[in-house]
Amino acid sequence: MTVDWRTHTNPPAPYVEPAPYGYLYLGFRVDPPRRIPFVPRSSRRREALRRCQDLTRRLQALDEVMSARAYRAVVIQPSSTSPRFDVIVLIETTAPDTIATVQADPAFQQLGADFVMTARNIRRLGDIDSSPSGTFLFNHFTADDADRALRYFDGVAGWFSHDAKVDDIALLGPLDPAPYVFVNQVRLPGTLAEFVLALLRPNFRHSVYRKMTGNRVGFASIICKPV
């Protein structure tokens, strides 16, 4: 069957109730690549990750922390809006109002992130599987109007569940002023190569890319592995 992309709409995303937790999204520019998307090995990054692992273990001992994990970037999308984080830390707190307590802890302050975004979950598809063998995507969305960007995201989110077979999506909306209207965490359902092939299909360009960029919603992806 031939699809007319001019009138095509994505199936609705099977959202579930947003998680009630608070989030601290931290980005570090340790040794990001300058001209290539793939992130090469780096002794500086390895040391930074070791330090982040030690500090996140300390944070996990806090009553207010549900989880805390460091990620190393493996691919950074070439984009003028990319934050170029080659190390990411995501901390999940018991509620948005316990974020400040975690931020006040010495272990958090010692992380010394280049970027910190406090957030809540505004959209969710399944539960994010934090398996250490997984591959994760963090997508950073920019727009002049956050509500409009969210409407357009809702209009394309079904592509990820229907066409890319993504089961786990957590959209994090900032609680304080931030350069991103939201950051999307996705656990890739298969290998990185399989996901990249899905992005190269014509239906991604028509169903997602053109709809978002045509409505002035930018996005920059970082693909990571947990450590």
Rank of each mutant, 00 (worst) to 15 (best):
D54L: 06
L197Q: 15
G134E: 13
R57V: 08
Y25H: 07
V75K: 01
F204Q: 00
R72A: 13
L188H: 09
Q103P: 01
D127P: 12
T56Q: 01
E194W: 07
V102G: 08
A95Y: 00
P14T: 05
T213G: 00
L192R: 14
E194M: 06
N203V: 15
D105M: 01
D145Y: 11
P132I: 08
I76R: 06
I99T: 03
P189W: 05
P179A: 08
Q110Y: 01
R120C: 10
M66L: 10
R34D: 11
G22L: 02
R46D: 10
M1C: 14
D167V: 14
R6P: 05
D168C: 00
Y15R: 02
H206W: 10
D176P: 06
S161I: 06
A100N: 12
D147H: 13
L111A: 00
T93R: 05
A13R: 02
D168V: 02
D168S: 01
S67H: 00
S82F: 05
T118N: 08
S133I: 07
R216C: 11
H162M: 03
P177F: 05
S43N: 08
L24V: 15
D105H: 10
G134C: 14
Y23F: 14
E17K: 05
F136Y: 14
F38I: 15
A170C: 03
L197C: 12
S131L: 13
A13Q: 05
A70K: 04
Y23I: 05
K165Q: 11
V181M: 14
H206F: 08
F115V: 09
G155M: 10
G22W: 03
D63V: 12
V116K: 08
I222L: 03
K225P: 03
V186I: 15
R58L: 05
E17W: 03
P40F: 02
I122C: 15
L111V: 04
S80C: 06
P96A: 13
V166G: 07
P83F: 00
K211D: 14
R41P: 07
L111T: 04
A164D: 04
A164R: 00
F38W: 11
I76L: 06
I36L: 07
D176T: 12
Q103L: 01
L175M: 09
A113R: 00
Y25Q: 05
